[in-house]
Design a protein around this nucleic acid. Structure first.
Lengths: 71, 71
DNA sequence: ATGTGACTTCAAGTCCGTG
DNA sequence: GCACGGACTTGAAGTCACA
């Protein structure tokens, strides 16, 4: 079973979040998303929209290009 | 008025499509999207999802990183 | 060959909770 | 601090007739 693009992005988001020392709740608070949604995104269960991808990348201080680097 | 991220992506998609010599209808056929949907994406009127962004990037033979380069 | 408004449908995204 | 579930509301996906 191939890993999907949303799972790959989810893993990236989780790695970045942990690196920042943030809980899912903290990232939810920073981005304005719901805490359960962050969890679903990290598990690759949600097909996130461009706007929301952009919100996450900004929170991590990354461009979209950087966010998707080697993904 | 700032240009939005979806408008920037739309312009990028259009530029890539034109460079390939494709009409919106041709790109629609290749990606499986509706012709009018392609137009709306190019005009930045749709908040496109990760899956659909990925479908477009594959059609252009680009990685997501490349698609978002300097965007 | 493309722009636009108006749809319907179903997934995105929220909010309550539990172990 | 996180995964998971049920029951919501909102918004993207996808289509069409017409200009």
């Amino acid at each position: 079973m191939e890993i999907t693009i949303q799972e790959r992005l989810g893993q990236r988001v989780k790695a970045l979040r942990v690196k920042k020392g943030w809980s899912q709740e903290k990232l939810a608070e920073l981005t304005g998303f719901h805490r359960t949604y962050i969890g679903m995104v990290e598990r690759g269960e949600r097909n996130i929209s461009l706007q929301n991808i952009f919100s996450l990348s900004k929170q991590f201080g990354l461009s979209l290009e950087e966010l998707f680097k080697d993904l």
